[in-house]
């Protein structure tokens, strides 16, 4: 079986980890927002904005890591806008989120057209290169798959640990989780629900933007329209699939990316020549929906997700 053979190649798993990386950033970002009680449907647009901002910064001459920071800052700005409207003003998180996605996407395209009016093919930057971690990268199969990636991929994996640690082992994480479960209790402790939620949305949006930037600065080396192509929505599904837990979300992202890498490879086998390529391209979206069906009954939704908190109101 050709498909089984594919599963045992290092290049397949390396591709899966690479495809998973932007999803890991953005899923962590969405997870932080939702854990604090705010659904952030701006994710798709924020990823577009991050992808452009990081790439544009590097294209204009800054260092790669500065570009990552620029992307993060742009994401946080959109997060500030989102959270100002949804947290103190308590406006519909659905409407504001979709509005932010439209605003971020259209202003990105506008900026792109202004910055590069006369290009037919988008210019390239010197993107992040794979860095082979000494010794570890020599492990057969696992080494080339896990330890010969670009620095941003390592950062994504490290962040999963950091976010788990902060969420479950620090007072800050407790406050964030409580803001999403029982905001009245947080307020009773003398903490500001508004500040916690706004902070969480800003940090989360920053991570989403870095997820977008991974596409233009690590996976590819230039910016295209339609580049994010629904990845943001898939990350929202991954948060549910991961039951709002960073570790499970990481697993979900890798599983999802593995299927995505697999469909690309199966397209090139004898099976792929008989099946229309659109069927393969549909798979990631269908898979996300199936995952939601499987997980939705068991999911531990944060109790105050999408519930605005107005102090003094009971």
């Amino acid at each position: 079986m050709e498909i089984i053979d594919i599963l045992f190649t290092a290049s397949f798993w390396a591709a899966a980890i690479r495809i998973a990386s932007p999803l890991i950033f953005a899923t962590l970002g969405e997870l932080i927002c939702e854990r604090a009680g705010v659904l952030n449907l701006g994710i798709e647009g924020i990823m577009v904005a991050g992808a452009f901002a990081g790439w544009m910064a590097v294209y204009s001459g800054t260092a790669l890591w500065t570009g990552v920071c620029v992307a993060m800052l742009v994401g946080m700005l959109f997060g500030l806008l989102h959270s100002t409207l949804t947290v103190p003003f308590g406006l519909s998180q659905h409407v504001v989120g979709l509005g932010i996605t439209l605003l971020a996407t259209s202003s990105t395209y506008y900026a792109y057209r202004l910055a590069l009016p006369e290009v037919t093919s988008p210019p390239k930057i010197a993107a992040f290169q794979p860095y082979e971690i000494p010794i570890l990268s020599d492990i057969p199969l696992l080494g080339p798959a896990l330890f010969s990636q670009t620095p941003l991929t390592y950062l994504a994996f490290i962040l999963v640990g950091v976010v788990s640690l902060v969420l479950y082992r620090t007072p800050l994480g407790l406050a964030v989780r409580a803001a999403g479960e029982n905001p009245a209790a947080v307020a009773a402790q003398g903490l500001s629900v508004t500040a916690i939620r706004m902070g969480a949305v800003m940090v989360g949006s920053g991570l989403m933007a870095v997820g977008g930037a991974f596409l233009t600065m690590s996976a590819f080396d230039s910016f295209f329209f339609e580049m994010v192509n629904g990845r943001g929505w898939i990350c929202i599904a991954l948060v549910v699939f991961g039951s709002w837990r960073p570790g499970k979300a990481l697993l979900g992202a890798i599983l999802f990316a593995a299927f995505d890498a697999l469909q690309i490879r199966v397209q090139q086998t004898s099976l792929g020549t008989h099946v229309p390529y659109q069927i393969f391209l549909m798979m990631p979206y269908i898979l996300s929906i199936l995952a939601l069906i499987l997980m939705s009954r068991r999911a531990q939704v944060p109790a105050a997700l999408m519930v605005p908190f107005n102090k003094g109101e009971r």
Binding site: L39, L41, H94, G230, W233, I234, I236, A237, V240, Y285, S288, I289, L292, I293, S296, R297
Partner: peptide
Amino acid sequence: FGVDEVVTTLL
């Protein structure tokens, strides 16, 4: 199944 329609309709 209680699946959130926002994500499913988008996908």
